[in-house]
Amino acid sequence: MSGTVMDAVMAELSALEEPKMREANEKRGDDHGVNLSRLRAVAKRLKTQQELARELWATDDTAARLLALLICRPKAFEREELDAMLRQARAPKVQDWMVNYVVKKSPHAEELRVAWTADPDLVVASAGWALTTERVAKKPEGLDLSGLLDTIESEMSDAPDRLQWAMNHTLAQIGIEHAEHRSRAIDIGERLEVLKDYPTPANCTSPFAPVWINEMVSRRRGA
């Protein structure tokens, strides 16, 4: 990729920087001030450019890395490269987009899911649980759902925030998608009380697993 193109993209990202947005994002650990709608517009114009995506990622700049994840070719990354990229990702938004926009579309997703879920790095483990939630919903065949509930029951209460959130999502997804495990999932949620008091805006579903499960099941039955 010519330096001219790379320099132009970085200059455009710099021009899109908004101090007030950076201040708000930094409270969540995301050190950038670019409006994500504008970032997506840049990505739409650039389209898929794998080489440029790699160069943007290498800058270690959060906005540049978010753009890289939007214009990359997910299936072009090797397993080891994806593993290294997740460990390099500092900002929560970068971690989330990497899992959702890249790893989930990779042929290495299942292998990484298994490895990451057991990783001692708690951010990496949370990515593994995010991939597990995806499998619970879309391809549960072969998953030990009872075993997952055992792990959630014993470990979720003491898990740090990001990992706890990811495990809670898996718990809720098991209860929503699998009627045979629903009562146990609700019971675990009620006893652990994880996210029970999480502030939830009006017209939004609480992340507290028993409420979340019952709400989604009710909606489906009413559909």
Rank of each mutant, 00 (worst) to 15 (best):
T4V: 13
T4D: 12
V5D: 11
A8W: 03
A8G: 06
V9T: 02
V9R: 00
A11D: 13
L13R: 01
A15W: 01
P19A: 11
K20H: 09
M21V: 15
A24C: 04
G29F: 02
G29M: 03
D31C: 07
N35G: 01
S37K: 11
R38D: 13
L39C: 10
R40K: 15
A43T: 05
K44E: 14
K44V: 01
R45D: 10
T48H: 11
T48S: 07
T48V: 10
A53K: 01
A53Q: 05
A58C: 01
D61P: 02
A63D: 10
R65P: 01
R65V: 00
A68C: 00
I71Y: 05
C72E: 00
R73E: 13
P74R: 06
K75F: 02
F77P: 05
F77E: 04
E78W: 06
M85T: 01
R87W: 00
R90F: 06
A91E: 12
A91G: 04
P92M: 08
V94E: 14
W97Q: 13
V99A: 10
V99H: 02
V99I: 15
V99P: 05
V103G: 09
S106V: 11
L112Q: 14
A115H: 10
A118W: 05
P120A: 13
S126I: 03
S126A: 14
G128F: 00
T132L: 06
T133W: 07
T133H: 09
E134A: 11
V136Q: 06
E141D: 14
E141Q: 12
E141F: 05
L145S: 08
L145Y: 04
L149S: 09
I152R: 02
I152L: 08
I152T: 03
S157V: 06
D158L: 09
Q164P: 08
W165I: 06
A166C: 08
N168C: 06
N168H: 03
T170R: 01
A172L: 06
Q173L: 04
I174Q: 07
H178W: 08
E180V: 09
R184Q: 14
E190F: 04
E190T: 13
E193N: 07
K196L: 11
K196V: 06
A202D: 10
N203I: 00
N203P: 02
C204A: 14
T205G: 12
S206Q: 12
F208N: 13
A209M: 09
A209Q: 08
M216C: 09
S218E: 15
